[in-house]
C-alpha cells in the first residue's frame, strides 16, 4: 500500500527527510515515532501527495508519488491533531460537506452509517464549536473515513486525548485494519506506538530502526541485558546514532 524507495526532501541545505525506504502492507497499522523535527510531518506530507520529493521515489496505493499526487489525495483519508472541522457547521453538515468533496455515492446513507458507528446521534444537529474534544475527535474521524479510504493517515491525531479516549479510538483502528484498511500513524507517545503492528523510529530525517515493537525491545534487551521499555529502545537508537 505504501512503498518508499530512498525518499528524500531537502529544504535549502537541510534534509528534512533523508533517504527513507519503507513498505507498509494492506491492513497493517504502521507507526512513525520520533521527536519534533525528526521528519515525521514532512514524510507524511509527501505520502499524502501535498509535497513533492527532492529525491527518491515512491508509490501509495499503487500511484506514483510524483506524477499522481491528485489521485493520491482523493483516495486517502487524513486526520491531524487540528481536526480541520468547520466549527460553525453542525456535525451532520460537516460529514455531508466532506462526503460531497470526495464525491461519495449516496452521501446521506454513508453519513447515517458513520453517525451510527461513532455514536453521534445525540449531537448530529449540534454545531461543532459546541462540542468537547472527545466528541469532536470522533466527528473528525468520521470525516476522514467518509469516502472509505484504503489508506488512513493519522498525524498525531490523538495527542492531547486521554488514556481512555485513546483506548476506544484504537479499537476502531483495529476494526478498520481487520477489514483491510491500511493505517499510518505518527505519534510521540510510547503507549500509542506500542499499539501499532510495526513501527519506524525517525531521527533527524533518517529511519534509524524498524520492526515489531516486541522485536525492537528484544534486540535492545540483548545489548543492555535488562528489561527494556519502548522508551529505552527509542533512546538507545537515538544515542547510538549520535555516537556513530
Amino acid at each position: 500500500m505504501i512503498e518508499l524507495d530512498s525518499l528524500a526532501k531537502r529544504f535549502g541545505s537541510f534534509w528534512a527527510v533523508d533517504h527513507v525506504s519503507l513498505s507498509v502492507g494492506k491492513g497493517e497499522i504502521y507507526g512513525l515515532l520520533g521527536a519534533n523535527g525528526a521528519g515525521k510531518t514532512t514524510l507524511i506530507r509527501m505520502i499524502c501527495g501535498v509535497l513533492t520529493p527532492t529525491a527518491g521515489k515512491g508509490q501509495v496505493l499503487g500511484l506514483d508519488l510524483r506524477r499522481e499526487q491528485l489521485k493520491i489525495r482523493q483516495q486517502i483519508g487524513y486526520m491531524s491533531q487540528k481536526f480541520s472541522l468547520y466549527r460553525d457547521l453542525t456535525v451532520e453538515e460537516n460529514l455531508l460537506f466532506y462526503a460531497r468533496i470526495y464525491g461519495v455515492d449516496r452521501p446521506k446513507e454513508r453519513i447515517a452509517s458513520l453517525i451510527d458507528q461513532f455514536s453521534l446521534h445525540q449531537v448530529k444537529k449540534q454545531l461543532v464549536s459546541a462540542l468537547g474534544t472527545g466528541v469532536r475527535q470522533r466527528v473528525a474521524f468520521g470525516c476522514a473515513l467518509v469516502h472509505q479510504p484504503a489508506l488512513l493517515i493519522l498525524d498525531e491525531a490523538t495527542s492531547g486525548a486521554d488514556l481512555f479516549t485513546r483506548r476506544l479510538f484504537w479499537e476502531h483502528l483495529y476494526q478498520l485494519a481487520e477489514k483491510g484498511t491500511t493505517i499510518l500513524v505518527t505519534t510521540h507517545y510510547m503507549d500509542e506506538a506500542e499499539r501499532c503492528h510495526r513501527i519506524a523510529l525517525l531521527n533527524r530525517g533518517k529511519l534509524i530502526a524498524e520492526g515489531k515493537v516486541s522485536e525492537l525491545k528484544k534486540g535492545v534487551q540483548k545489548e543492555n541485558r535488562e528489561k527494556s521499555s519502548l522508551e529505552d529502545v527509542f533512546f538507545y537508537y537515538m544515542n547510538k546514532k549520535r555516537e556513530a
Binding site: 521527536a35 519534533n36 492531547g160 510521540h188 510510547m190 522508551e231 533512546f235
Partner: peptide, 10 residues
C-alpha cells in the same frame, strides 16, 4: 510533560 516530545519529556 503534556504535549511535549519524548526528548523534552526526558
Amino acid at each position: 510533560t503534556y504535549g511535549v516530545d519524548p526528548v523534552a519529556r526526558q
